[in-house]
Design a protein around this nucleic acid. Structure first.
Length: 485
RNA sequence: GGCGGCAUAGCCAAGCGGUAAGGCACGGGACUGCAAAUCCCUGAUCCCCCGGUUCAAAUCCGGGUGCCGCCUCCA
């Protein structure tokens, strides 16, 4: 079965056929670096991280480009507020961006262009549009002439007349038409600027993406992504500029992710109801957040709340227990061996096929995870307390896990050794924790108590540990422990 | 006002014409000194409502109702 992608351009699922077989050119709109990333950014980037991982898993050579918008009004304003300059501000938030995103296990794109490093390309593109009669300079600004592009609105489904009748189009007497948007903005005194044929100024928001796409990927790319809110006007304008300049289709597939809601309301900077990623990662493990995102389809809205997060944690814990067992079996000298025949184990044997089928259907991670859980239940049937006594079970369990592992990796899950997952991670959770030596001492004391059948004392110790956030699990090979979190 | 999306068990969530995946929570059983983990069993006679098409609809069509998003910077 072939990959099908929901294309916002046309609003329907289409078979995915890259321009060049086996090669995928993908551009994702990055962030404007004037503040910390919030969980909406995290969701978008996790969604495309999984898309890139899956495209590569399926054998494609993917060139993944994601920009930084490092110059615009918000950055300038914020820099002024903080008494700093745009460059120090954007540099600081780019550093913060990497700190947060790296913790999320997000792949670094192949190219991460910055708007300010592409001023010549942006100017050239403006000149090309002016020369073609698609844009015009006015008093140091350059505007794009929307009415000159007949297909304007084809992505967002809007038509020019409706837009004109809307009261929200800003009026600027310098524009020939209210719908026209700025490609180049002249700088006001004290603002950062770059020299241009129209005088000192800076690029408008939309043009930078067109220029960077063309420079790093070419005039037609395969996939252009971003959040749903970018459809209009940003992506609509990118199409208008780019296609007017080149006469070629700009992107073959437009992919847009749904929002993160808080209390069923869109979370956004403008509403002020947003959680920053670093704030959330103090109390939520990064992979729990990934699991949470992956458990819904990327185009659906997702509701961020404690209940949903703890459900995600419970689910991920279960997956990590499988990994924990596999690691234990490996350490005890087990080696992979054949999975027994029979329908009981079909979910493991067919895991990859089923997983791919789900992912090929517009990256249906929720369905894919369903299949993974089926497989997990199947290999858990092979779990044994004593791998040395039942080596075939441990071995079959191991090979089952090894078949699943690459699939989890596509989702970016189970990247840590299980001990790290269960024992570390959230910075806040780590504070005030009982040290390992103390835990081991208590376990030893409990072992002695249980040895002399003093169960009340044993239970007391276990309860005491639990109250301190440490869970004990007795197995044939001894007692193991993990932090509750 | 214009455009678009969604409504499935207590909660989250797949399903895209062939008779309701999966997760979490709950209950019963096995295992355990007791727990935990793991395994087994159990849960929607039905998919917001009303019509229609079809041999067959949660899935298609029409009409309601209720949420949500975009049209303004926004992942």
């Amino acid at each position: 079965m072939a990959l099908t992608i929901f294309n916002s351009l046309g609003n329907r699922k289409e078979p995915f056929v890259p321009l060049e077989p086996g090669k995928v050119k993908l551009y994702l709109c990055g962030v404007t670096v004037y503040d910390f990333c919030h969980i909406g950014h995290a969701r978008a980037n996790v969604a495309f991280d999984i898309i890139v991982r899956y495209l590569r898993f399926s054998g494609n050579q993917v060139t993944f480009v994601r920009n930084f918008t490092d110059i615009d009004d918000k950055i300038i304003n914020r820099a002024n507020e903080q008494g700093t300059d745009y460059l120090s501000l954007s540099t600081r938030y780019i550093e913060a961006f990497y700190e947060d995103f790296d913790r999320m296990g997000l792949l670094r794109p192949d190219v991460e262009p910055k708007a300010t490093e592409h001023i010549p390309e942006i100017i050239t593109l403006c000149e090309r549009l002016i020369a073609g009669g698609k844009a015009y300079p006015v008093a140091g600004d350059v505007y794009y002439s929307v009415k000159g592009f007949k297909e304007y609105g084809k992505l967002s489904g809007k038509n020019i007349d409706d837009l004109l009748s809307g009261a929200r189009v800003d009026v600027d007497e310098r524009k020939k038409d209210p719908l026209d948007f700025a490609l180049w903005k002249s700088s006001k005194p004290g603002e950062p600027f770059w020299e241009s044929p129209w005088g000192p100024g800076r690029p408008g928001w939309h043009i930078e993406c067109s220029a960077m796409v063309m420079k790093h990927l070419g005039e037609t790319i395969d996939i252009h992504g971003g959040g749903k809110d970018l459809v209009f006007p940003h992506h609509e304008n990118e199409i208008a500029q780019s296609e007017a300049a080149t006469g070629k289709p700009f992107a073959r597939y437009w992919v847009h992710n749904g929002f993160v809601n808080v209390d069923d309301e869109k979370m956004s900077k403008s509403l002020g109801n947003f959680f920053t990623l670093r704030e959330v990662l103090k109390v939520v493990k990064p992979e729990v957040l990934r699991f949470f995102f992956a458990s819904s389809h990327y185009r659906s809205p997702i509701d961020y709340c404690d209940t949903n997060l703890s459900e995600a944690k419970a689910g991920l814990d279960r997956l990590y227990r499988v990994k924990e067992k596999a690691e234990g079996y490996l350490a005890s000298g087990a080696f992979p061996c054949a999975i027994p025949p029979g329908d009981d184990f079909a979910p493991v044997r067919d895991a990859q096929t089923r997983f791919r089928e789900a992912m090929d259907d517009d990256f249906n991670t929720a369905a894919a995870m369903g299949h993974l859980f089926d497989a997990v239940r199947a290999i858990n049937k092979l779990a044994t307390d004593d791998p040395k006594a039942e080596p075939w079970k441990a071995g079959a369990f191991l090979s089952g896990f090894m078949q699943l592992n690459p699939l989890f990796d596509v989702l970016g899950l189970l990247r840590l050794p299980s001990a790290d997952y269960f024992r570390n991670e959230t910075s806040e959770g780590a504070e005030g924790r009982m040290p390992e030596s103390e835990i081991l001492g208590a376990i030893e004391a409990r072992r002695e108590a249980r040895g002399r059948k003093d169960y009340p004392e044993g239970d007391r110790i276990r309860k005491e540990l639990e109250d301190s956030g440490v869970l004990l699990e007795d197995g044939k090979a001894g007692t193991t422990w993990k932090y509750k979190d």
